[in-house]
Design a protein around this nucleic acid. Sequence first.
RNA 1: GCAGGCGUGGUCUAGUCUGGUAUGACUAGGGGUUUCCAACCCCUCAACCUGGGUUCAAAUCCCGGCGCCUGCACCA
Length: 533
Amino acid sequence: MDFQKVIAVATRRGIFQSAFDAYGGLAGFIDYGPVGVKMRRRILETWRKLYVIDAGCLELDGALIGPEALFQASGHLGEFDDALVNCEDCKKQFRADHLVDGGEEMSRDELAKAISGMACPGCGATLSEMTSFNLMFSTGVGAGKGLPGYLRPETAQSIFLAFPWLLRQNRGKLPFAAAQIGRSFRNEISPRQGPLRMREFTQMEVEHFFLPNEEPLLSDDLRDVTINLLDANGKETSSTVGEGFDEGIIGSSLVACHLARAQKFLTTIGVPDKKLRFRQHGSNEMAHYSSDCWDGEINTSLGWVEVVGVAHRGDYDLSAHGNASSKEFRVAVPGTEKETEVWVPDIGKLGKEFKGDAKFILEAIRDVDLQPGFSVDVNGSKIELTSEYMSQKTERRSEMVYANVVEPSFGLDRILYCLLESSWKSDGEREWISLPQETSPYDLLVAPLMTKDGLDDKAHEIMKSAIDIGVDAYYDEAGSIGRRYARADEIGIFFSMTVDHQTLEDGTVTLRERDSKDQNRLSIEDALNKVRR
RNA sequence: GCAGGCGUGGUCUAGUCUGGUAUGACUAGGGGUUUCCAACCCCUCAACCUGGGUUCAAAUCCCGGCGCCUGCACCA
């Protein structure tokens, strides 16, 4: 099964196609069709079951467009923004900050100065002016000039911003995890390979927060999950997650937990164990904030495709937002409450005495450890605050810290593609997608053996009762029965129910299982119960 | 973004060099026949990526755009 074939089947069977086809298409965007939407939904359901229901993650659905300040703080405006220079002569393009010593530290203006008049490293001609390219889509918020806004380049920031709110929903307790399914947008320079590199894509992310010294341990049920590991030194092992952690290959217990969960999730939806591995990032590949990072990869005809990243992000994001915004993103460490005697200003007295200057004084002492005799500069004159302007008070305070976070982040579109490719089976002429019942787009194919003698009426009747009990069934009466099985197989429908003459006599049907083609004769009721999920 | 290759019904494709009614298969729909794994027969729907140019005439030649593939560059 190669890329072209997946694309052809996806188009033919209503899974996905490239978007805006009528207008020539636009790279990096695809539409999901009737079958694709069902497959995605099933994958999401499985994911939600594992993370939101089993693991108890708090679910969030964040806004897609964010203000400039947010992306300034998250680092995306800086990190996602590349200064590019072109050479007019040899048509090569370079990153400006890579051409200058220490360029990564420079501001835009400094870079522009350093670049001007520089010779092209390729051909020696003079480089043209610097242009900048930001991987984020920008837009305007509001009428007129409006405020600059950006489409989020990852869902994660929504969770980080909601951290204080979510923490309250968890009644102030750590650890906890938040989950989010949503779209993200990146204006990729050259998106290729359909669903693998998109400009608009769906992420399924978890941010698992914990106190710095209280990282959740690897639980017993996750210890025994078998997993293929490729560590940063290029050493491949197949062992349990517990062994990998004990031997120090996996550096963090919570990263180990999430590697195990990711392994469970991907195999549950039908990715064969043999085609799945987790590869550790080398130190140069790792994002600057991350201390341990693993990519879950699926082996396809295009090589290993990254479908999930598990990263230890430390406190990078929360502290960034804590520093840049006016909100408290830290948490109190339980058990560290201390009684301290603190001096608090007597605001009434300060006001009466200093009138208009009082607000400058208050401003100046806001974040300092106030003591009698503290002096402040106000409009050039020095004011000494004696004890008559303050009083002593006993305060209970806790140590405040930023929570750390481990993040598994899944790319839904890539997962679907890899799943289609990796579960593709063929046997001579016969070709089918061997999806587990879990991710099969329909629960059941209902097919009358022929469309006479009332068999089709009976089949319609069964369809109705299937739908009544929540079985998502697909009805097909066109063509030979073999052809209909083949059609169903091609989109991975797990069970097929065939209505024949015996059905009319004793109320039994045959239930065919896709992979084995085995058929059993059961009562209608038993058959429906069997396919019901 | 650069270079090269490519773009024909839903899918795969012939035709492009050498300009003149667009080939075939599969799929799908209708009908017939058969009835448990893509059978068969008849019928039908359906395409030259797009915009300009050259020409009496463009799928075909030329130029621009868009898209796809490969390589380079980029890639949290």
